[in-house]
Write a protein that binds this DNA or RNA. Structure first.
Length: 968
RNA sequence: GGGCGCUUAGCUCAGUUGGCUAGAGCAUCUCGUUUACACCGAGAGGGUCGGGGGUUCGAAUCCCUCAGCGCCCACCA
């Protein structure tokens, strides 16, 4: 049977194995052959909703690690006869994807406006189709056993309907409203951003100290002088004595752009130590200032437009300038008028867009929000009984110090503190985006109902802020088109932004006519929804019956979605801690509201993959590792192991090529262990039973450790300590390599093979390894001639409550100890391992050595002879050491005849060192045992142990001294 | 400014209710072409567990403090 290759060739087998799995149909829970009671028991489900990768290109190591952890959980539970569903998909990732495509077309010198909405979206969809394919391929490469039959995409028809349904439902429940307030605006994306989509970057900035005009009594300080053109107040701390007398006064100032009324107000938020202790309030372009203005009823002047340029309110000389140009010009003005007192360099944290790094402009805008503090009662919803979204989201997640099975548990638990803290401080969530790619909001306007307003109020403004409305417009070929069509075209093709201040709107999923006047001239709000709005529905929108058109109402649809009934809530949400707020929190908000169910029962947060130095992997640093390249080089199993081992919940993981290489070796070792066993089998054993009456010590020893291994692996998996299963004490690596390969197999070569034990151990080992390294284990399984797939073999539960080591282990350790010591003596004295030497094992009855131990050694003398390479092995009682032989001790005394080759001085030195160490140790124990407090307070077994250790050490010291004397 | 995490052998990391002379893999050194595997085997060296203090019979482990690194949150302009 030499057809099994010497080295495991991952390239050769992986794709074929994956095909086999896929063809078996077992990725799909509908095809699992479960006992009826298990199949129909909803409690017996195990469901993971795969966090959908963004549809923006390729998978990176972060995805690879996520797939490794999830597939491991999925495979383990599938083998354990759970009704397992792992649902894959992709996220349209509106801003990220749109930005990417914009960059691509920019290379050809195009903008999205050149293409128009429809063409641009077509371009985006083509791009997405492409990346979805790539992602699919790469996900398969990772060995992911997910159910491709249920693959979803956030822009699928069904999922899109879910988005609209939830929007309308929330609107009707007054949880979605339109509000006019200051928002985070990204001038490059030309869109709003949610609070958590804003990132902060530390940088140096100039802090300008100046007065608005010569006779103004207060000097203010700012890093953004240009915004002062929109100031309407100065805020000081109410306790600040310097400014007490001005509070409440109103000044009139002139900044070269008309008269401003500046009111002096008091606000506790103002720091007296910063700058001059006086803050120029620009309500329209600062979050803080906006709130102060709201409290104090102060006028808000918008001077910066959505394109990041100054508008007419900033003054004629400023209109059209960029923010930076305006700053330069205004500072020049201040200098010229001698108003600047000083300029200081300060540290400042600049707000930037998380997608394109552009500095954020806070500005007032009419946008749509989710009200997180609005209390509501929903019939049939266990959570919403006069509670707000925020309150429910806080309630359903365990706090870090509590354990409640009915609540979501976040692992590691420290993140539940982070979650609670964030949720408590959550503001209303801005969900409208001026992005083209995404779910368009189901908000409609009737052209006819609003016609007068449209005409009279010039409500349509173009992007430059120029106003105007025409009922008919000439096109290039000279034809005229009606206003409605013109309006639609403007909306669809971009370039114009609707300012829908006074327009009447209505919210509907798919309206055909105006509910009021029955006109069919409707136009939809061009804004799309925050991408996290749809991601927030992911765990259930993916399980809704995709054949949705049959169902008129949402409730009917839900009721007719068997997957939703069977698989929701999902079991574990496994994702990176970086999207705890973006995604986890949103899913909890949206799902508890929509279904009255939590989206998942547990959250497992993994860390980020970093390079060897702990740096983030990035293109600019060039330190990224391509998972596909690693798979080609070392195999998927090796890559998976390198991400599983060394990772713990919530902690970052360092990954580098040597590590992957190391696990390739591990995989290959398992391959060769199996190869040896399969090749040396007399015949293929199919049905077998272990003959427990006729087992050698080594047989019993390996079987005992296999039982322990089952416990270790099960325990590790149940507690999400994946790394521990392989790399921990008594883990898979220790068992497979150190115990099974290096000892048991070697012993079996000497004592004769027990094929049944070999096969039994191998099969069990493969089952335990499969969730971690599915490809190689499945391939070996096939090489063994199995008909069934290992993937659906029954999982091994542990009988143990913990690690149990019996006399068997002690006995085998005795033999191992003797062998290792003889090998060491040879090695240290320059004797070849192959050279057979004379050995006498001297045995004496002591407390810890009985006749049984003597028998053990005697019964296994062939192992000692072979593995330690010994001739004339004598096992005797109370035999004096032959003159000139070397003695060492490992529970028993062993005399070795190597006088000719021994370096006596070197050996003496070594023994002296050893004696010193043991003396130090004896001193430690003696002081412990001499301490009355220790005797009195420590548990009896600990004291007893210390006493034993003391006796042993004294004995060991005595023997070492004896040995030293004999050497000199 | 608030919160969290990390610091154990040259490197990457274990060490889960405080109690085996603190462990593993890689790297290093020595030896080895034993018919499963050189992607291997046999052995060896290497750490006052970041510093200081405290609690305790006993601390890598618990508490305090200092230092360094990293992350998250926050409206100090």
């Amino acid at each position: 049977m030499s057809e099994i290759p010497k080295a495991y060739n991952s390239q050769e087998v992986e794709d074929k194995i994956y095909e086999k799995w896929r063809e078996s149909g077992f990725f799909n829970p509908d095809n699992l052959n479960l006992p009826k009671d298990k199949k129909n028991d909803k409690e017996n489900r195990f469901v993971i909703s795969m966090p959908p990768p963004n549809a923006t290109g390729v998978l990176h190591l972060g995805h690879a690690s996520m797939l490794a952890y999830q597939d491991l959980m999925i495979r383990y539970n599938r083998m354990d006869e759970k009704n397992v569903l792992w649902l894959p998909g992709t996220d349209h990732a509106s801003i990220a994807t749109q930005t990417k495509v914009e960059k691509i077309i920019a290379e050809k010198g195009q903008t999205k406006y050149d293409l128009g909405r429809e063409n641009f979206l077509e371009r985006v969809n083509k791009y997405v189709e492409n990346s979805k394919n790539t992602i699919r391929k790469q996900t398969k490469k990772m060995g992911s056993s997910c159910d491709w039959d249920r693959e979803r995409y956030t822009l699928d028809d069904g999922l899109s309907r879910a988005v609209k349904e939830v929007f309308v439902k929330m609107y009707n429940d007054k949880l979605i409203y339109r509000g006019d307030r200051i928002v985070n605006w990204c001038p490059r994306c030309e869109s709003t951003l949610a609070d958590d989509e804003v990132e902060h970057k530390d940088q140096k900035a100039n802090l300008y100290y100046f007065k608005y005009q010569k006779d103004f009594p207060i000097t203010i300080a700012t890093t953004r002088p240009e915004t002062k053109l929109g100031d309407t107040a100065v805020a000081v701390n109410p306790k600040d004595e310097r400014y007490q007398k001005y509070i409440g006064q109103v000044f009139e100032i002139e900044l070269g752009n008309g008269l401003h009324k500046i009111k002096i107000i008091a606000d506790r938020e103002v720091g007296m130590e910063f700058g001059t202790g006086a803050l120029g309030v620009t309500p329209a372009h600062s979050m803080t200032d906006w709130e102060m203005a709201e409290k104090n009823n102060i006028e808000k002047i918008k001077i910066i437009n959505e394109d990041g340029k100054m508008n007419a309110s900033a003054g004629a000389g400023y209109k059209g300038l960029t923010v930076l140009e305006a700053r330069e010009k205004f500072v020049k003005y201040l200098k010229k008028n001698n108003l600047i007192e000083k300029i200081e360099e300060v540290d400042q944290s600049l707000s930037v867009c998380y997608r394109c790094d552009t500095p954020i402009e806070p500005l007032p805008s009419k946008q749509w929000f989710v009200a997180v503090d609005q209390k509501i009662t929903i019939k049939g919803n266990q959570y919403f009984q006069n509670k707000s979204l925020k309150e429910v989201a806080l309630e359903v997640v365990n706090k870090s110090d509590e354990k409640n099975k009915d609540k979501i548990e976040i692992i590691p638990e420290r993140f539940s503190k982070t979650y609670h803290n964030w949720m408590e401080n959550l503001h209303d969530w801005c969900i409208s985006r001026q992005i083209w790619f995404g779910h368009r909001m189901p908000v409609y306007y009737c052209f006819d109902c609003n016609l007068e307003k449209i005409k009279n109020n010039n409500l349509f403004k173009d992007r430059d802020g120029d106003e105007g409305f025409v009922t008919q417009l000439g096109t290039e070929d000279g034809k005229f088109i009606p206003a409605y069509e013109h309006l639609l075209r403007e909306l669809e093709d971009g370039g114009k932004k609707i300012i829908d201040d006074d327009l009447e709107y209505f919210v509907d999923i798919n309206p055909k006519k105006c509910p009021k006047c029955k006109s069919e001239k409707l136009f939809q709000n061009p804004d799309t929804l925050d991408t996290w709005f749809s991601s927030g529905l992911w765990t259930f929108s993916t399980l809704l019956n995709q054949d949705h058109k049959k169902y008129k109402t949402f409730e009917e649809w839900v009721a007719n979605s068997p997957d939703l009934q069977n698989f929701h809530p999902t079991s574990v949400m496994e994702t990176g801690y970086d999207i705890l707020f973006f995604w986890i929190a949103r899913m909890i908000l949206m799902t508890t509201y929509t279904l009255g169910e939590v989206p998942f029962e547990n959250v497992y947060l993994h860390g980020m993959v970093r390079d060897k130095q702990g740096r983030k992997m990035s293109k600019s640093l060039g330190n990224g590792i391509d998972p596909i390249e690693m798979i080609e080089k070392y195999g998927t199993d090796a890559l998976r192991l390198s991400m599983i081992i060394g990772s713990s919940p919530g902690n970052d993981l360092r990954l580098f090529e040597e590590k992957i290489e190391g696990y390739r070796n591990f995989v290959n070792k398992l391959w060769n262990v199996s190869r040896y066993i399969i090749m040396n089998q007399e015949s293929r054993i199919k049905n077998y039973e272990i003959d427990y009456e006729n087992l050698t010590l080594a047989d019993k020893w390996i079987l005992e450790h296999l039982e322990n291994l089952k416990y270790i692996v099960n325990n590790a998996l149940e507690n999400y300590q994946f790394s521990f299963a392989i790399d921990g004490e008594y883990g898979i690596r220790d068992f497979m390599w150190d115990k099974f390969a290096d000892w048991y197999l070697e012993v079996s070569k000497v004592q004769g093979k027990n094929d049944v034990v070999l096969i039994y151990v191998l099969e069990n080992l493969l089952k335990l390894c499969h969730p971690f390294i599915p490809f190689v284990t499945e391939q070996i399984w096939q090489e063994m001639g199995k008909e069934k797939l290992l993937m659906v073999e029954k999982w091994l539960k542990s009988k143990n409550e913990g690690i149990k080591l019996t006399q068997v282990n002690i006995d085998f350790n005795l033999i191992q100890g003797i062998i290792s010591e003889i090998r060491r003596i040879k090695n240290e004295n320059g004797i070849s391992q192959k050279e057979k030497i004379d050995v006498v094992i001297n045995y004496e009855i002591r407390k810890d050595l009985t006749q049984k131990d003597f028998d053990t050694i005697e019964n296994n003398r062939n192992i000692i002879e072979a593995l330690a390479v010994v001739k004339n092995l004598k096992i005797e009682r109370k035999k004096e050491k032959p003159e000139g032989w070397i003695q060492f001790d490992c529970r028993v005394s062993v005399y070795v005849n190597i006088e000719d080759s021994i370096d006596k001085e070197k050996e003496a030195e070594r023994i002296k060192k050893e004696i010193q160490e043991i003396e130090k140790y004896i001193k430690q124990i003696r002081s412990k045992l001499g301490n009355d407090n220790f005797i009195a307070n420590a548990p009896a077994d600990i004291v007893e142990k210390e006493r034993e250790k003391y006796m042993e050490s004294e004995e060991k010291k005595r023997k070492l001294e004896e040995k030293l004397k004999s050497l000199l």
